[in-house]
């Protein structure tokens, strides 16, 4: 069986986020109040905070995960880490290095069926940028090299997960070959998983986790990204169904025309597998 390795401090797992920072990310994301760049940054920052929370124990933070965020298009033709310092950070290091924390409200259960609102500190590790073109291939190449190095050092870890969030077409070539190369990087527990979230530019119906090419509109770029999105391992199909998402057993890790709800849902499901394997 694959995607079942236990994640521990001696056998941690790698999660990489890849985020489009091209100019068109300044457009408003349907379903949200703010731009695609802002909503995507918020969703990833929230997810990093969630990883920190899950790894926090009474005696501190346990490094079950290593995380990185790669941006592409913050300057035309450029791609690279958008976190301070190294490309990949152990989760304990990330906990100590947010750019800032913001006071936000969260609802917590009151233990008797209701909710209580309480202040909490929302960690911000990077700010949204929407500036240049879409050098996705460059971003993917950086991710590929990092994943290759990671697997050499952690050959039996839970397979790395790469989550790519974009609203456009790569301006520096065809990303298919690099993505296939990344998917071919494997640990003893399975292939690297590549998740592609295609953000919406219009309010038409999103398509989450399609299984056939005919499930998505006849859009060359969408078909290309769909074709190189990983087929969901059965555990993830289960998580999606628990969230009332209707999908087939051979669904792919792809969302076409994602609005805010689908973006958040996509990241939640994409990170749920490794979180469930924490020892």
């Amino acid at each position: 069986m694959t995607y079942e390795a236990e994640i521990s401090r001696t056998n941690p797992s790698l999660i990489l986020f890849l985020i489009d920072q091209s100019r068109s990310m300044s457009h408003k994301l349907p379903g949200g109040e703010r731009s695609k760049a802002q909503e995507a940054a918020d969703a990833i920052n929230r997810q990093i905070g969630d990883f920190v929370l899950r790894c926090t124990k009474s005696d501190g933070i346990r490094d079950y995960f290593y995380l990185g965020v790669i941006g592409y298009g913050y300057v035309t033709g450029k791609a690279g880490s958008i976190l301070k310092g190294d490309l990949i950070h152990p989760i304990s290091e990330l906990a100590g290095m947010p750019l800032r924390t913001e006071k936000r409200k969260m609802k917590v259960s009151d233990g008797s069926g209701g909710d209580i609102e309480v202040d909490y500190d929302f960690g911000v590790w990077f700010d949204p940028i929407a500036n240049g073109d879409t050098p996705m291939c460059k971003g993917l190449s950086i991710a590929r090299d990092a994943i290759k190095d990671w697997i050499e050092e952690h050959p039996s870890s839970y397979p790395p997960i790469l989550i790519n969030i974009t609203d456009g077409q790569a301006t520096d070539g065809n990303p298919e070959d690099i993505i296939k190369e990344i998917q071919g990087l494997k640990t003893t527990d399975g292939d690297t998983l590549v998740w592609n979230c295609h953000l919406s530019s219009n309010p038409s119906t999103p398509v989450s986790f399609p299984s056939e090419e005919t499930d998505i509109p006849n859009d060359k770029y969408a078909i290309s990204l769909f074709g190189v999105s990983s087929v969901l391992p059965s555990q993830y199909v289960g998580y999606a169904r628990e969230m009332q998402i209707d999908l087939k057993d051979n669904a792919r890790a792809y969302v076409f025309n994602a609005q805010l709800e689908q973006l958040v849902e996509f990241i939640d499901i994409g990170t749920r597998g490794p979180q469930g394997q924490m020892q």
């Binding site: 926090t56 917590v108 500190d121 960690g123």
Partner: peptide, 10 residues
């Protein structure tokens, strides 16, 4: 620390 407070309130 801030991240521990976020969890401890639960």
């Amino acid at each position: 620390p801030w991240f521990q407070k976020n969890k401890a309130v639960l």
